[in-house]
Design a protein around this nucleic acid. Sequence first.
DNA 1: TCTTCATTATTCATATATGAATAAAATATT
DNA 2: AATATTTTATTCATATATGAATAATGAAGA
Lengths: 150, 150
Amino acid sequence: MNKIFPNIGSERETDRLMFSLVHAASELEKRYEAALFPEGLTGPKFAALSKLVLAGRPLSLGELAGELTCVRSNITQLVDRLEADGYVVRLVDETDRRTVLASITELGLAHQKAGAKRVEELLEALSESLKGIDLDAFGKVLSVINLTGT
Amino acid sequence: MNKIFPNIGSERETDRLMFSLVHAASELEKRYEAALFPEGLTGPKFAALSKLVLAGRPLSLGELAGELTCVRSNITQLVDRLEADGYVVRLVDETDRRTVLASITELGLAHQKAGAKRVEELLEALSESLKGIDLDAFGKVLSVINLTGT
DNA sequence: TCTTCATTATTCATATATGAATAAAATATT
DNA sequence: AATATTTTATTCATATATGAATAATGAAGA
């Protein structure tokens, strides 16, 4: 599904560029997901595992929700699936019995590592294909859009 | 949820740019959805209604799926919701009784028009804030990424 | 014509996302 | 200490997306 701008065929240059930008982003996401697929991972699963690896310790589901900027109930479900995959286990935090910790398993670690390698290859290839292009102007436009209040 | 690139804090410039690109796209989408919300529309609902308006005739669900580049079962559900909203009605195609046509209602038309106005305002504002920026280089980078096979 | 094949939409299972309502536990207030 | 509030995760309802399996209909070929 084209999530945005049903492409009414606008004349304005910025319209076409914004359409193209959204398309490029979704293209990137597709390649990213495709890179992770052989390792039994999806984008959200890899993101969660990567946060655990980066932290180097079990994280509470609330912390994970914060890191991944999403709602708690989302993490509950994601961790359900990761647990079903055997990539993560739930632990109770004995210092605060409300808290549930997600702890990455050996299997999860192995898959995260493999996924990270694939993603690195993807970014490396992308970097290669963008060689010799003026990225400064690109960054400037992005920063304008990224100013959240326009 | 950060759909992509769990932001491991890479040094490579292109990595940061790709992250920024995905972020910009999701920012745009958020504003787009926010613009449509007051008109009782979401992105997918508005996209479907807009295709019907653009066509100027009822479209089969298969045609809609093609226009919106998504799977048929997705459209079945989307049209269910649009029908529940009263924005669309289902008609049987008498020339091919397998086919179901989605036909926009007066109410749907009114909401699409209102939504289109909001989106136009959003794009107008965006175009304004990008005035004076070199969009050529931007377009070039996007076109590289949009070459689906890299 | 009758059987086979293709096409259409729907249903079902699943993944991802949000937000409201709930339950359990910790903290604060009286 | 007892009550009230806050914080934690889960459950539920819903929206959006995919893909596999199914049912109904149409088209092609024997």
